[in-house]
Amino acid sequence: MTEEEFTEFYRHSVRRLTGQLYVVTGDLHEAQDVVQEAFVRAWGHRRGLDRELAPEAWVRTVAGRLAISRWRRARTAARAWRRHGETPEVDGPDPASVDLARALRQLTERQRLCAALFYVCDLPVDRIAAETGLAPGTVKAHLSRARAALARQLDHPTELREHSDDLH
């Protein structure tokens, strides 16, 4: 089957196969996924599809088997979860963490990267410069700007300045 023939085959059968698998799975997204995966596999076997009497049946069979495999995996996973009991409830993030995450998103990508490497990974400026390909002075500038922006947004300037002495 040539690329053009396969494209035509796909065009004429994808909706029909998706509808058929939707009836089997009861889930449109699952049906779309398994049909697409089956077509991907058919693409790899398209030369052999020439010899098939019904390439659509081949794709339908593969899609059906994929759907059954996914169903079995989901069923096994559900059993495993039930065996381990209920999951413990986890408290959501505290308001300060939410504020910090929001403030970090306001930083530029480089400021956020430099701040994370310095404050979270506890790397010195020279190491940050080596890892990012920035000059040490540029890293210091990004850290300074990040601290200033975070201080303005979080209104806690003293907490952020504690580490500023480490820059020098």
Results as ranks from 00 to 15, higher is better:
Gly85Thr: 02
Ala57Met: 01
Leu104Phe: 11
Val34Ala: 02
Arg11Leu: 09
Thr138Pro: 08
Pro95Gly: 00
Arg46Leu: 09
Gly64Tyr: 05
Val90Glu: 05
Ser164Cys: 11
Ala130Ser: 15
His163Trp: 10
Cys114Phe: 10
Val14Cys: 01
Ala103Gly: 00
Ser69Glu: 14
His168Trp: 10
Leu143Arg: 06
Leu17Cys: 01
Ile128Gly: 04
Thr25Leu: 03
Glu159Tyr: 05
Gly26Phe: 09
Val90Asn: 01
Ala31Trp: 03
His12Asn: 11
Phe6Gln: 00
Thr76Val: 11
Ile68Glu: 13
Pro88Arg: 11
Arg161Asp: 12
Ala129Glu: 06
Leu21Ile: 07
Arg82Gln: 13
Ala42Gly: 07
Tyr10Asn: 02
Val120Tyr: 06
Pro124Ala: 06
Gly44Cys: 04
Asp91Thr: 04
Thr18Phe: 02
Ser164Tyr: 11
Gly26Asp: 08
Gln32Trp: 02
Ala129Asn: 07
Ala38Lys: 00
Val62Ile: 04
Arg51His: 11
Thr158Leu: 14
Cys114Gln: 07
Asp155Leu: 13
His156Thr: 15
Met1Arg: 04
Arg16Asp: 10
Arg75Ser: 10
Glu159Gln: 07
Leu143Gly: 05
Leu53Asn: 11
Pro55Thr: 02
Gln153Ala: 11
Ala57Gln: 01
Arg83His: 10
Gln153Met: 13
Arg47Glu: 15
Glu159Thr: 09
Val120Arg: 09
Asp99Ala: 15
Ala146Tyr: 08
Ala130Val: 07
Ser144Phe: 08
Ala96Thr: 10
Ser13Leu: 03
Val139Thr: 07
Ala77Met: 12
Ala116Ser: 13
Ala146Val: 06
Arg41Tyr: 01
Tyr119Val: 09
Thr25Ala: 09
Asp27Trp: 04
Arg83Cys: 06
Thr61Phe: 08
Arg147Gly: 08
Leu21Met: 12
Arg65Val: 02
Leu49Phe: 02
Gln32Asp: 04
Val34Thr: 01
Lys140Val: 13
Ala148Thr: 15
Leu117Arg: 14
Thr61Ser: 09
Ala54Cys: 15
Leu21Trp: 05
Glu159Asp: 13
Arg47Ala: 15
Glu5Trp: 03
Val98Ser: 03
Asp166Met: 11
Leu160His: 07
Leu104Gln: 10
Arg41Gln: 09
Val98Asp: 05
Trp71Gly: 13
Thr158Cys: 05
Glu52Tyr: 13
Gly133Cys: 06
Ala146Gly: 11
Leu117Asp: 13
Glu37Trp: 04
Arg79Thr: 09
His29Gln: 13
Asp165Glu: 12
Val40Asn: 01
Asp166Cys: 08
Glu30Ile: 02
Trp58Phe: 09
Leu154Gln: 00
Trp71Met: 14
Val24Tyr: 15
Ala74Trp: 05
Thr138Lys: 08
His163Asn: 06
Leu66Tyr: 04
Gln32Glu: 14
Val139Ala: 10
Asp94Asn: 12
